[in-house]
Write a protein that binds this DNA or RNA. Structure first.
Lengths: 209, 209
DNA sequence: AGCTAGTTTAAACACCCGTTTAAAATAGCG
DNA sequence: CGCTATTTTAAACGGGTGTTTAAACTAGCT
């Protein structure tokens, strides 16, 4: 395997686990069995490495999400909110074929990116992959047209927060849940549980104060 | 003002803004106009300072939350989920009297603590302030007894995630929202919007797969 | 084989970190 | 006042950080 990929593979596990700030290049390169300077040689800087790690997932995910959402929007009958959110499941789970534990690693990275480094990753995602967001809001708008744009703005961000936050601590939660309820559970199980939650949240009746 | 309080005041703003790992003692002490060594003299270590910052809020909040929740549980008619969640609003908003921008700062700190430093703050909160959690689950159990303990476990963590994550990026979101919808909005407004969302999420019908 | 372009390597660089030290300053009190 | 205990201070410590350097190595190709 190429040095570049060895670095990427080691980096995304460590980044997901300990955050971007919390992971040093020395940890990454020793885990990847490559020289420290290789990161700067192949990627230029740590920041560019972070972008590369995220891009590897987004380039895989983004087209699949786009087609899944546009399929829903063009269907003869208008979709339910439940269907809109379920459109995310297959593309997300396919990341597991793309890479071992790809789904949960990616979602953890997303969570890290939201809170670490003062939102530079949010800027990166919204500017580099804007279609994912516009397609999603379009689909929600069709499924729940009564929702004002502003309410939708907030509820989608709440949803983003729920997903991302849950997944970034999903390993710990799964551990606790398996101890307390001895119920075999994996990342797909968590997704199965979070979808009804966020769908109900977005579908909540509009309160007019 | 005492050196100790100057440090605490500077620390919680910086911690909320840039995370625990992302804030150095040198930033804190220069912002507080005190000597670098003062932190270790008064608090012992950075970790103890983090605990002290959180305790200052929790000691204020915890009793108020406990009484608000037990009031609800002991009412003659069983509470709705909406009421259970609204019980949080007043105690949280009272943090603004306790300290300028106390509410949003505290919630941001909570978000930081969940993701930074591999969950040591979660351990700290659940072991030092267990009553808040048990009272909350008790109240939810009364309001929605059909929910299994396991489902409740997950939905409460989803809720925690939504709140904490939303608030940790609330400033940026409020900025965007005010630009796009020119709608005056503050932290209380965000709370007003997130409550129906999480209440609906927790109240979502049970799916049996 | 000999040259070149691409890659890897060990070492050093300059800087930031949390913590400790020991001296200086400041209060508090008999 | 003079003594003691507390607090503040500047400086240093040991270690970790991302990045850069220049030399060594390794293809690939004529």
């Amino acid at each position: 395997m190429s040095t570049k990929n060895k670095i990427l593979d080691a980096a995304d596990v460590l980044f997901a686990d300990k955050g971007f700030n919390g992971t040093s290049l020395r940890e990454i390169t020793s885990q990847a069995n490559v020289n420290l300077a290789a990161v700067n040689y192949h990627f230029g800087s740590k920041k560019e490495l972070i972008k590369a790690v995220m891009s590897r997932y987004m380039d895989e995910l983004s087209p699949q999400l786009e087609s899944a959402l546009s399929l829903i929007c063009q269907a003869e009958q208008k979709p339910t909110l439940h269907e809109v959110f379920y459109a995310f499941i297959d593309p997300l789970l396919k990341l597991n074929e793309f890479k071992e534990n790809g789904t949960s690693t990616f979602l953890q990275l997303l969570g890290r990116g939201y809170t670490d480094s003062q939102g530079f990753l949010r800027w990166f995602l919204t500017t580099q992959y804007p279609n994912v967001f516009t397609n999603f809001t379009k689909a929600v708008k069709i499924a729940y047209p009564e929702l004002t744009t502003e309410e939708m703005f907030w509820r989608l961000h709440f949803t983003m927060g729920t997903i991302v936050f849950t997944m970034s601590s999903s390993e710990a939660l799964i551990d606790i849940a398996q101890n307390d309820f001895d119920n075999k559970l994996d990342i797909a199980g968590v997704i199965e549980r979070v979808i009804p939650y966020v769908a109900a949240g977005v579908a909540a009746p509009i309160t007019n104060n």
